[in-house]
Amino acid sequence: MFYHDDELQFEVTVEDPNPRFAKLLQQAIGGAEGEMRVALQYMFQAFAVPQEKQEIRQFLMETAVEELGHIEMLATAVSKNLQDASDEARREAGEDAIIDEMMRNGQPRQALSAGLHAMPVDANGNPFTGNYVVASGNLAADLYANVMAESTGRLLATRLYEFTDDPGMEEMLEYLIARDTMHQNQWHAALEALGEHRPVPNSFPQEKENQEYNYAFMSTYKDERDDPDQPWTQGEAPDGKGEFSYTPRQPGGGQPDLDEMIDEMYNEVN
């Protein structure tokens, strides 16, 4: 169950409206690095956590709901950047200043389909897709995915920060960047609290793996190369269960025999 309050999670102000920046902010809403992605990712991960791990379920769900608040903040910022034209634009375009600046610098669909408001799309106008969401049902795998999601989200926010000099937009992004810092650290802390979990999933018996290759870095160069003496070719593996090694070539396995499939699927060349 969710409850909504009209108050934003963090105040959003825009001093110098900029439709071009509104277009860029759309990436932080509906893009691969955006808030819709992490909100739904954490929510669907929480749905998969069993009731006996209620503290983990709540942990994920609280962060998911926080991300919903970030979507609301960003949507407000998009609207504020779209709905007021700058004084310069007004002088150039007269009575149609807002639409003129929108058509020149923004996404026309935001005027035509959304009445100068945010949309669930990225900066290129591509609709948000659930394919961005990682919710595997394995908590360790999901937490690693969350670290990546927060890392790319923070990277996006820092890049957006460099595209604006509006004090209100800088203040909003400073808040979002700070929250990304916290979320990265909380997922790392949760991974450490899990204890031994590598490789993921760690419940599969490793004695069933091919023991010759489960800790071998495999070179894919055509010509044989010497061991580059890197941390991933020698020494103990991070999971503490094996020693890295180097193999200069792939094992090889003959030619694919696809004649039967070609016949059945009528894929003959002639």
Rank of each mutant, 00 (worst) to 15 (best):
E196V: 12
D259V: 09
E52L: 09
V14G: 03
T158G: 04
G242Y: 04
A89M: 14
G235L: 06
F217H: 14
Q184K: 12
V12S: 06
R37N: 07
G30E: 04
H197R: 09
E95A: 12
G253K: 07
N202K: 12
T233Q: 04
L155T: 15
F44T: 05
L25E: 00
T158M: 04
A189V: 04
Y42L: 14
V133Y: 02
M148H: 15
A140F: 07
D239M: 15
A193D: 13
A178L: 07
K222A: 13
N185L: 11
M218N: 07
T233Y: 07
P108R: 02
N146S: 15
D257R: 12
F128L: 06
M148S: 14
A64I: 00
D259K: 15
A118S: 05
Q234H: 14
P256W: 11
T13C: 14
T129Q: 10
E209Q: 13
E66K: 11
D259L: 12
E207S: 11
G137T: 11
D122A: 06
T220N: 08
A149W: 02
D16H: 11
E92Y: 00
D180Q: 11
A111W: 02
K208C: 03
H183G: 06
T233C: 05
K80L: 14
G168T: 03
N81Q: 05
P251C: 11
N126S: 11
Q41L: 06
Q54T: 11
N124Q: 11
A64K: 00
E196Q: 13
